[in-house]
Amino acid sequence: MSKVKDYMIRTMNSITPKDSIKKAIEIMYRSEQSVLPVVDEHNRFIGTIYSNNILKNIIPESFGFLDSSRLFYEVNEAVENLKEVKAEPIEIYMSENRDAVEEDSDMKKVADIMLNNKESLLFVINEAGYLRGFIERSNLLHFLLDEADNSDLTADSK
């Protein structure tokens, strides 16, 4: 049985609920991760901050349905909105979901969660709830490719 720990990315890149929106954005662009795990003061996973959580709160609802001149205006408005909220703690914007998987979980469970919930990334924790890293769709595809190659080998040996 293939486990999450065989395919995951091990990293504790994270943020806490009291950290600011500005810090979250800086960590996101420097580490090239548009989703960050939110942890408590002991590094236990408590939620997720998506770049979309932030964008939704600074870009007017009508964004995306406008002509280009209106879009420019809306972007400027988003900049102004971001000035207002950048010092706010991310606890206001984070998702307090606990859809994390454990290192020893079966990779088939990850496939199930990702495909059913349309999650592109899941955070990985140990059995005590401490952050260990994440697993994303490319890792899932890697697992599926290994499964496909193994089943080819099994078929050939028959």
């Binding site: 990315i9 091990r10 990293t11 504790m12 890149n13 960590i27 420097r30 580490s31 090239e32 260990r132 890293g133």
Partner: peptide, 21 residues
């Protein structure tokens, strides 16, 4: 730094880095 972190993760070490400018 991102390249460095990828190399570290190949050893199955948990990277815990502050990404600097």
């Amino acid at each position: 730094g991102l390249f460095f972190e990828k190399m570290v993760q190949k050893y199955d070490i948990i990277s815990n880095y502050i990404h600097t400018e």
